[in-house]
Measured scan of single mutants.
Amino acid sequence: SDIKVHVGDITVELHNVSEEFARLVEEALRLGLNEEQAKEWAHKALH
């Protein structure tokens, strides 16, 4: 599904992702990663 993740003043739109993936992206953003890094990190975490 499509999910918007908000962290501080950052909003990341995720398309066709699981809630778990979105949660991992949100966690990575909170750790200070940028959007691209957060998506990559979440992807690796799920595989």
Rank of each mutant, 00 (worst) to 15 (best):
L33C: 06
R30I: 10
I3H: 14
A38E: 00
E35L: 15
L14Q: 04
N16K: 06
S18A: 07
L33Q: 03
L31D: 06
T11R: 04
F21T: 01
I10V: 13
V12I: 14
D9T: 12
E36T: 11
W41L: 04
E36M: 12
K44M: 14
R30G: 09
H43Y: 15
S1H: 15
E26C: 12
V12P: 05
D2G: 11
G32E: 01
H15T: 10
A28F: 09
W41V: 03
L29R: 04
A45L: 11
T11P: 03
L31A: 12
V5R: 03
H15C: 07
R23W: 08
V5K: 04
L33A: 04
S18K: 05
V7A: 08
A28Y: 10
Q37D: 13
L24W: 09
I10Y: 08
G8R: 03
R30T: 10
H15S: 10
R30D: 02
H6S: 14
K4Y: 04
E40H: 12
D9S: 13
H47I: 11
I3T: 08
I3K: 08
D9C: 09
Q37A: 12
L29E: 01
L24C: 02
A28H: 02
S18V: 06
L14H: 06
K44V: 12
N34V: 03
F21D: 00
E26Q: 11
H47D: 09
T11C: 04
G8V: 04
L31I: 09
A38I: 01
E26A: 15
G32Y: 01
T11N: 04
E26G: 13
A38Q: 00
H43W: 15
L24D: 00
E36W: 10
E13C: 07
N34E: 06
N34F: 03
F21A: 00
D9K: 08
H15P: 06
V7W: 15
L46S: 06
G32W: 01
T11S: 10
A28S: 02
E13N: 14
H6F: 02
S1E: 12
E36A: 05
K39Q: 08
V5N: 06
H47L: 14
G32A: 01
L46R: 02
N16G: 14
H15Q: 10
E26M: 15
H47G: 11
L46W: 13
V5I: 13
I3M: 09
K44G: 09
E36V: 12
A38N: 00
E27W: 15
N34W: 02
R30N: 09
V25C: 02
V5Q: 05
F21C: 02
K39Y: 11
E27R: 13
G32S: 01
E13T: 13
V25A: 01
T11V: 14
L14N: 04
I10E: 06
I3L: 09
F21R: 00
D9L: 11
E40M: 13
L33I: 03
Q37Y: 04
I10Q: 09
A42D: 00
W41C: 02
L29C: 02
E19W: 15
E40A: 13
S1P: 10
T11M: 11
S1M: 14
V12R: 02
L33R: 03
K44L: 12
V17P: 06
E35P: 10
L46V: 09
N16F: 04
A45Y: 15
H6K: 10
V7S: 06
